[in-house]
Nucleic acid binder design. Structure first.
Lengths: 145, 145
DNA sequence: CACAATTGATTTCCTTACCAACGAACAAGT
DNA sequence: ACTTGTTCGTTGGTAAGGAAATCAATTGTG
């Protein structure tokens, strides 16, 4: 808490810096665990989102992940190379693409999701329930607006 | 809160995803405001850290920002090109580098810091004091361990 | 002293992220 | 039908983040 006082020059007084630092840390934690499945955290988010709604539109996928289309394009490129997802044409709109999980991905995803839930559990255990609930509430509010 | 329940498949149930999403949002907010000074959020963190301790060692800078050395190398490259920082040899260790702010940076940094404090203020105002205090406490705990 | 091990910083490679510009396809209006 | 405008996805550019390999300099050990 020392570095948060207002007349300090330290970057650690700024929200954005704090968030970025923690995010990177948690990201590395996920990354090191997901690597045994040969995927990255971002690829895992895409897998989860497509698992939730197989065959959804590219643009809806991007929107649901709050991700720029061009970022998703390159992630899907790699995931297609890894045989995790498949892009198919949308019969209703020739500009649009539909995204599907491959059989390979369908077989792996629930195990991976289980692992990720375990990682979350380990993180949560470091805090009190209320503390963490408030933390998540604030995050939720952030991403809504 | 809907998406956080445990039997959902949505990526938004995972801490790492939530953090990344919020972080990106806040990052974009900072980015759009800092761009008037021609710098990025990460460059701003470096400026702040060097402003706090001018002439610190490269490795200490990287450590204090919890940043990989290779990342810092490329950020400093750009910042040197922008005439914001300067690398000098460490007289005590020829492997080591010392990092200094340029005059140009010294003149701009306090104004930029003031802007950033304003951005933080605007964010804070969206939450209750306790709520946000807990949020920051959790972030703090995260980055300590 | 000499040699091995470690440290400091850079380079290269890969992934993510975003913006701006683009071309193709669709929609709306006249 | 034709033109105008919009939407969809990709491409190309830049920045950041990190892992691994590398080189030079320093430290440790025999």
């Amino acid at each position: 808490m020392v570095a948060s006082n207002d007349n300090s020059r330290s970057p650690s007084k700024y929200i954005c810096y704090k968030l970025s630092r923690v995010m990177r840390k948690v990201h590395r934690y996920y990354e090191s665990n997901l690597s045994q499945y040969g995927i990255t955290p971002s690829q895992f988010y895409v897998l989860s989102a497509v698992w939730e709604r197989d065959g959804l539109k590219f643009k809806d996928l991007a929107k649901s992940l709050d991700m720029d289309g061009s970022t998703l394009t390159s992630i899907l490129d790699r995931m297609e190379r890894l045989d995790l997802v498949e892009r198919r044409n949308d019969p209703e709109d020739r500009r649009s693409l539909l995204v599907f999980l491959t059989e390979k991905a369908k077989q792996k995803i629930s195990e991976i999701a289980h692992l990720a839930e375990g990682l979350d559990q380990e993180i949560k255990e470091r805090f009190s329930d209320e503390e963490f609930a408030t933390f998540e509430k604030v995050l939720e509010k952030f991403s809504q607006e």
